[in-house]
């Protein structure tokens, strides 16, 4: 029976060890971090594992335990390295890629300057070819009925909506997904903050059967434009 129980303890140790490595390796992968962390875990695990393998298979050389720990450590290190590298690459791509949406909402503007915010800019100032400020563009996300809805929008200098696009969403096809369609989006054009409510309070008609999704879009736009107004003022 001892044998059986030891197996579980070993399994647990292995799992915790692997987890430990993964958590400790920061996204900034350098060879030294990976090797350093690997060394720490190796030292932490080698004793219990040697004991277990010695107990379980009497007479087997202790080297086997070292082998087991080393393999587990190595696999976790490689996994951590692969993950961090992929993450770094995609993060850089994403930051560059999201800004590529901006010219689509404001075709007239030539350059966009991010304003405010530490990690993500609150909004972008849009300048035309001559260098005049022509409006503001922004991203805003809000929980819909099935997941996060990410919108891109643009307003003119009087804070009236001149464009709205759904960048990504996961609403129900045939219902909430209609927020993508021009029939719904075009209602926003030319409206100011005061009108950005669902009718009868405001000027936006909700999509039949998809009030939650419609509300999310309207609320997100109103909050964001209000935020930009205070920020600019």
């Amino acid at each position: 029976m001892v044998k059986e129980e030891l197996k579980y303890v070993a399994l647990l140790l292995g799992i915790i060890g692997a987890l430990f490595i993964l958590i400790l390796v920061l996204p900034m992968v350098t060879v030294t971090t990976i090797l350093g962390v690997g060394l720490v875990v190796l030292l932490l695990e080698i004793l219990p594992f040697s004991y277990i393998i010695y107990k379980e298979n009497k007479g087997e050389p202790i080297v086997n335990a070292i082998g087991t720990v080393a393999r587990l450590t190595l696999i976790a290190m490689v996994a951590a390295g692969a993950l961090s590298t992929t993450y770094e690459t995609t993060q850089a791509y994403m930051a560059a890629n999201l800004e590529m949406v901006l010219p689509r909402v404001m075709p007239d503007a030539a350059t966009f300057t991010p304003v405010g915010g530490e990690e993500e800019p609150v909004y972008y100032e849009a300048y035309d070819d001559a260098g005049n400020l022509v409006g503001y563009a922004f991203f805003v996300s809000k929980e819909g009925s099935q997941g996060t809805i990410l919108l891109a929008g643009a307003i003119d200098l009087d804070y009236n909506v001149i464009a709205i696009t759904v960048v990504r969403h996961s609403e129900t096809p045939g219902l909430g997904a209609k927020i993508k369609e021009p029939a719904f989006r075009d209602q926003f054009l030319g409206l100011s903050v005061a009108d950005l409510h669902l009718s009868p309070e405001g000027k936006i008609d909700a999509i039949t059967g998809a009030t939650i999704s419609s509300t999310a879009v309207v609320d997100a736009m109103r909050t964001k434009i209000g935020e930009i107004q205070t920020e600019v003022a």
Binding site: E5, Y8, V9, L11, L12, I15, I16, A18, L19, L22, I23, A79, L83
Partner: peptide
């Protein structure tokens, strides 16, 4: 990866 490892470890521990 963290969640699945923690859950696996926890379930093994409880069973034990």
């Amino acid at each position: 990866i963290c969640f699945i490892l923690v859950i696996a470890a926890f379930v093994q521990l409880v069973e034990f």
